[in-house]
Design a protein around this nucleic acid. Structure first.
Length: 320
DNA sequence: CTCCCGACGA
DNA sequence: TCGTCCGGAG
């Protein structure tokens, strides 16, 4: 790295750090207010889900299950219900599996190596790196869609392309990561935050950007702005994802025994005699979606995922 | 319609 | 490396 390049990087780092001080969103798991486990939960909830939607779920979740051991002891039905409408409910299943591994294999203490973290259910490259940086304060380059976009724009003057992070992108991320450990954490957080709130994909707010004077992308006239960088997202309407969501949403809405005993007598629906888990009868299942071929395919896939259980009479329920 | 702090299996 | 998995906001 040349002297001038080093100086430029340092200038950018200082501006971002100052910007972070006054512009960081006050998320409840930031600024040392959450345990490493709490940070991990926030990262899992944030996978493909906006922070603004995550915050209330995280608050409720952490009150119910403050640590891995508590989550490990919950029933799967409770976990799926608490996941609510965050989307991608398999994440909730994996998070509980993760909690059980942490409790059983790691004595309820989150491991702090990349290899061990990525070995946990639902924890991939991004989440492992984020936990190491944000929860444990280790020096490691965090690579997510926001950071890839910001680094590509500021340092290379181009839009980041879709697909997996290329080796060149990882090299760049490691090259510009501050040597000082504490500064590397602030760097990761500030670059990510800039990408989420200012240096957005389609319409970046360059006038409000703290590094607009140093940005290669802006200097080049923002070539190819808004160019599709990620692979096209699957549409939603009419897909299996929508149908699966309908089924789970119906199951989440069923009154439980707690509702019956606590509140104004809600109609306690049909429940399994042994477990007490509320059951959605086959007739109610069929009322959810007219295409029964697709519906049954989704019921089967939900069962395979462990998100529901199918009873002999065709009714379904959340797993215990 | 696209986008949002991805992970996983085929 | 690609397809799948949710849902809401802009």
């Amino acid at each position: 790295m040349s002297v001038s390049e080093t100086e430029r990087n340092e200038r950018i780092r200082l501006k971002l750090a100052a910007w972070w001080e006054t512009n960081a969103r006050d998320l409840p798991w930031r600024f040392g207010r959450a345990t490493p486990w709490g940070v991990l939960v926030s990262e899992v909830m944030s996978q493909q889900t906006q922070m603004s939607r995550v915050v209330p779920y995280w608050e409720t979740w952490m009150r119910a299950w403050p640590d891995a051991a508590a989550l490990a002891d919950a029933t799967t039905a409770e976990v799926i219900t608490a996941w609510g409408r965050l989307g991608y409910p398999r994440r909730a299943l994996r998070l509980q599996e993760c909690a059980r591994v942490v409790r059983d294999r790691y004595a309820d203490e989150l491991p702090r190596t990349y290899e061990e973290l990525t070995g946990l259910p639902g924890i991939g490259d991004y989440t492992a790196s984020a936990v190491l940086s944000f929860a444990f304060g280790e020096r490691i380059a965090v690579i997510d869609t926001n950071i890839r976009r910001v680094l590509a724009r500021v340092f290379r003057g181009v839009e980041s392309l879709g697909g997996a992070a290329a080796p060149a992108e990882r090299e760049l991320a490691n090259r510009v990561l501050p040597e000082d450990t504490a500064r590397s954490v602030t760097w990761n957080q500030s670059v990510m935050e800039l990408g989420a709130t200012v240096c957005t994909a389609k319409s970046p707010l360059c006038d409000d950007c703290p590094v607009r004077e140093d940005c290669a992308f802006l200097a080049a006239g923002r070539p190819g702005l808004g160019e599709r960088r990620t692979r096209p997202r699957q549409r939603f309407a009419g897909t299996d994802r929508q149908v699966r969501g309908l089924v789970l949403n119906a199951l989440r809405g069923l009154p439980t025994d707690k509702d019956a005993s606590a509140g104004p007598a809600g109609p306690a629906g049909p429940a399994d005699a042994v477990t007490g888990t509320p059951v959605l009868p086959r007739a109610d299942v069929e009322a959810l979606w007219t295409d029964h071929i697709q519906l049954d395919r989704c019921i089967a896939s939900l069962d395979e995922d462990g998100l529901i259980e199918i009873l002999p009479d065709g009714g379904v329920r959340l797993p215990r």
